[in-house]
Computed example of a mutant assay.
Amino acid sequence: MPSTERPGLRVNGRLTIPEAELKWRFSRSSGPGGQGVNTTDSRVELGWDVSSSAAVTDAQRALIEQRLGSRLVGGVLTIAASEHRAQLRNREAARARLAALVADALRPPAPTRRKTKPSRGSQERRLSAKKRRTDVKRLRRPPGE
């Protein structure tokens, strides 16, 4: 019989967070669900301890802590999901959100913008358009102004 346990949370091609490092908490959710909201623990909190994780290298850990520092509490990244009525769907949403957040933090920075100056043709077009507009406004004035 095949195992239903997932090997881990795949973040990108090089990083998979082991399932053992993920901590789950469940609580009652506000929001959709009618009377069932009062009885089912459908809200999900997913926590991952970045500071003691064996899945990331020291360089990756430093990058995650730098970019997600405001979201870390004691080195733990916590994601809450309560938008669905079913706990299973909230679990999947939390897993996807955690993977996207970590993948975005590990993405290399965009190249810096190189300064450019407007071409001579674009400058001439801009100035000639301004002159045309000035002439139009001057011709609209009442005589004697």
Rank of each mutant, 00 (worst) to 15 (best):
Val11Arg: 02
Gly69Asp: 05
Asp41Lys: 15
Arg97Phe: 06
Asn90Arg: 06
Ala99Phe: 01
Gly121Phe: 12
Lys131Ser: 14
Lys131Glu: 07
Asn90Ser: 04
Gly13Ala: 14
Gly75Thr: 07
Ala20Val: 06
Gly75Asn: 05
Leu127Asp: 02
Ser70Lys: 11
Arg113Val: 12
Arg43His: 01
Thr40Cys: 08
Pro142Phe: 09
Ser51Tyr: 07
Arg89Ala: 14
Ser27Met: 05
Arg95Cys: 12
Pro2His: 14
Thr57Pro: 00
Trp48Asn: 01
Leu98Pro: 07
Arg107His: 03
Leu77Thr: 05
Leu98Gln: 09
Met1Leu: 14
Leu88Val: 11
Gln66Ser: 08
Arg91Glu: 12
Val50Met: 08
Ala59Cys: 07
Ser3Pro: 06
Pro18Thr: 00
Thr116Lys: 15
Arg125Gln: 15
Gly75His: 06
Ser53Thr: 07
Glu65Thr: 01
Val56Leu: 11
Gly75Phe: 09
Asn12Val: 00
Glu124Leu: 10
Pro32Gln: 02
Val37Thr: 13
Ala62Tyr: 00
Thr57Asn: 08
Glu83Asp: 14
Arg25Trp: 06
Gly13Val: 04
Gly31Phe: 03
Pro2Lys: 13
Ser53Leu: 01
Lys130Glu: 13
Leu127Thr: 10
Ala54Val: 02
Gly121Asp: 15
Gly8His: 09
Arg120Met: 12
Asp104Pro: 00
Lys130Tyr: 08
Trp24Thr: 07
Ala100Ile: 00
Arg61Asp: 00
Ile17Pro: 02
Gln60Thr: 05
Pro111His: 10
Ser52Phe: 08
Val37Met: 10
Gly33Trp: 01
Glu145His: 09
Pro142Ser: 13
Gln66Gly: 06
Arg14Glu: 11
Gly8Ile: 05
Ser122His: 15
Arg141Ser: 09
Val136Tyr: 13
Arg89Leu: 13
Leu139Trp: 12
Asp104Ser: 10
Asp49His: 12
Pro111Asp: 12
Leu72Thr: 06
Ser122Ile: 10
Pro18Ile: 05
Ser52Glu: 11
Gly74Asp: 07
Gly121Cys: 10
Ala86Cys: 06
Arg91Pro: 02
Gly33Cys: 08
Arg126Cys: 10
Ala80Leu: 07
Arg138Gln: 13
Pro143Tyr: 04
Leu88Phe: 13
Ser70Pro: 08
Glu83Tyr: 01
Arg71Gly: 10
Leu68Thr: 01
Val44Ser: 02
Ala20Pro: 04
